[in-house]
Amino acid sequence: MATQISTHKATALTNPSNYALTSHRLRRTLHDFTKQPIVLVACGSFNPITYHHLRMFEIAKDFIRQNTDFEIVGGYLSPVSDEYKKAGLVSAHHRVKMCMLATEQESSWLMVDSWEALQNYQRTAVVLDHLDYEINTVLGGVSTRDGEHRDVQVMLLAGSDLISTMSEPGVWSHDDLDDILGRHGTFVIERTGAALDQAIDSLARWRNSIYPIAQLVQNDVSSTKVRLFFRRGLSVQYLLPAVVIDYIEQNNLYPDDGPCTEKDKGKGTESGEADISTSESSNTCVKKP
C-alpha cells in the first residue's frame, strides 16, 4: 500500500488578474475516510491535447484505486506559458481552450488550471505549490462524511522521461526535487525500454513517493505526430477529441504546409523539457528549474 506523504501548505503566489481556480469538478467530500485525498496534476504544452493525455489520467486512476491508500478528488492539466518559447507552440489561449473543450466533453473529473499559462514561465515545483495553496488554503481542502477536515495532497502525473531527467546531475535543483518528490510525490507512466528502475535508484531518497505505473495498452500517439498530420493534410480522426479537431480547423492552428521535411520528424528533449507522455519528448513537458 502507498506510504502517505505529509501535505505541504504553500504560501500565496501572485495570481494573474481575474484568475480563479477552476474547481467545479473538485470533489469536496471523501468517499473513504481512511484514505488520503489527492489531486493529480499534469504539466505540459498540450500542443494540442490528445486522447493519450487523457488516457494517462485513467491509467493512474486505476492504479491508485487498486494499489494505494489514496483517493482521487480531482485532476488538473496545466498548460505551459507562452514564455516557454518553444518553436511551433501555439498561443496559451488556444492551448487552454483546447484542454477545456477536451476535458469538458471527454471526462467527468478532469479540469484545466490556466494559472501557469497566463503568466511568465513557472517551474513545476511552483505550479504544484500554487495548486496546493489554492486547494488547501483558499478552498479549505476537503472533508470526510463526518465533517472532519483533510488537506489534499497535490501530486504530479508524468511520463517516464521525467524521472530520467530528474536523475541527471545538475538538471533539476535539489530544492525543487525535494518539493516535487518529497512534499508532493509523482505517478510515472512507464515507457517500454525506458530505464526507469535505474533512474529511481538515483533518486533513492524519494523512492517511497515515486509510483511507477505500467501501460497495459501501449499508446504512441503524440502531439508532435498530430501536428505533423495536420501539416501534411492527413486525418487525425480518433487521435484527439472531435471538438478539439473542430477548434483547430476553425482557428487554422496547424496549417497544411505540404510534405514534411526531416526536421519535422520526432525530436528529442530540448531546453530541459521532459515529456509528460510516454512516447513523446517535444511537446508535453514537465519543466526543470
Rank of each mutant, 00 (worst) to 15 (best):
G147D: 04
V226P: 02
I200L: 06
Q198H: 03
F63Y: 15
T68N: 11
N208K: 13
L240F: 03
I276D: 04
L139Q: 09
P259I: 09
T124S: 15
D257H: 09
K225M: 13
L203W: 02
A214N: 11
S143I: 06
Y211F: 14
F57G: 11
A242I: 00
I200E: 01
L234V: 00
K265S: 09
E273L: 14
R227H: 10
L162V: 15
H53S: 13
L139A: 12
D161Q: 07
G193M: 02
E104S: 12
P48H: 03
A60F: 01
R145Q: 15
Y121P: 00
R227W: 06
K9A: 13
Y19N: 06
S271P: 08
I245G: 03
G272A: 12
R227P: 12
I213A: 12
D32L: 07
H94M: 13
V221K: 10
L216W: 00
D178T: 05
V126L: 12
D62T: 07
G159P: 05
T11N: 14
D32K: 09
L203G: 13
R191P: 04
D113M: 06
S6E: 06
Q250E: 14
L139V: 00
R191D: 08
D176N: 14
D146R: 12
A102T: 04
Y76R: 15
D132A: 15
I213E: 08
R231P: 02
D220M: 07
V90Y: 02
D62F: 04
A92L: 01
S78F: 01
S6L: 07
A117W: 02
V221L: 15
S108E: 11
E134P: 09
A10N: 09
T192P: 08
E148K: 09
F229R: 15
T50G: 08
E262Q: 10
I189S: 10
E104T: 05
K85R: 13
N136I: 04
L139S: 06
I38D: 03
T186P: 03
V152W: 04
D132T: 10
S173R: 01
G182V: 05
P212V: 11
N15S: 13
R123Y: 09
L40I: 05
N208E: 14
S223E: 01
K267E: 06
K225H: 08
R150V: 02
A12W: 00
L181K: 05
A102D: 06
S91R: 08
L21Q: 03
